[in-house]
């Protein structure tokens, strides 16, 4: 299995376009996933009966094979980027929801009681005490969701989107490994860069974690 370097140098423009479109799909999905899962997680954390229901529901969504999700969305949103993003968002939900709930659970009861005793109102406690303390676990979820989305975008190649995933179909159909290798490498690079950026963000957001070490 040899790499055809001239193919790569002849397709740099295409590769850039595919990489950017790949990244855009993944990031949009994670952002949407966060917007949806944050309020749901708070709800699941506060209202016990809802917890099992919401986590169970997101688990069920997660188990549907991605290719089937994309196909089943076709009657709704057609062969578009929207289908890709909706499909990916569904997958980010289970990780984000579970981690956010677990993050909120991990906040010590004593800390919450202290906030209450100091007269902090529930919403303020949530925003200034619980969420910051839950942040490491939430960010772990965001990192998983981001990397997972970047890897999953390629599945949308079956519905004519898929960013770098189009290289896999191309290589498979022509029995030509170069695009497949390039696609895998670029996807990995994209994930590593995005993950490093999130680590840096978490470091910046949790100054109290640094002092202890």
């Amino acid at each position: 299995m040899t790499i055809d370097w001239s193919w790569i140098s002849g397709h740099t423009d295409d590769l850039t376009t595919l990489t950017l479109s790949h990244l855009q799909a993944a990031l949009t999905a994670v952002l949407l996933g966060l917007i949806i899962s944050l309020p749901l997680a708070v709800l699941a954390h506060r209202v016990r009966p809802l917890r099992g229901l919401l986590l169970g529901l997101s688990n069920v969504l997660f188990t549907i094979p991605s290719i089937a999700v994309f196909v089943l969305l076709l009657p709704v949103s057609g062969l578009t980027r929207t289908t890709t993003v909706i499909g990916l968002t569904i997958y980010t939900l289970v990780v984000l929801l579970r981690n956010t709930v677990e993050g909120l659970d991990s906040v010590p009861a004593r800390t919450k009681e202290a906030a209450k005793a100091m007269g902090t109102r529930p919403l303020r406690t949530l925003l200034t005490v619980e969420l910051p303390l839950a942040l490491p676990v939430i960010m772990a979820g965001v990192r998983i969701a981001t990397v997972m989305s970047i890897s999953l975008v390629s599945v949308a190649t079956y519905i004519g989107d898929g960013g770098l995933g189009q290289l896999f179909t191309d290589g498979f159909q022509r029995n030509f490994p170069t695009p497949v290798i390039v696609g895998v490498v670029l996807t990995l690079l994209l994930a590593v860069v995005a993950d490093a950026a999130l680590v840096a963000l978490q470091y910046a957001l949790t100054p109290w974690k640094r002092r202890r070490a």
Partner: peptide, 20 residues
Amino acid sequence: NLASFGRALPTVGLVVLVFL
């Protein structure tokens, strides 16, 4: 980092690659 590297591996690409 290895773990997130593994998670980032596009399954379709990997299968096609090992297949080819």
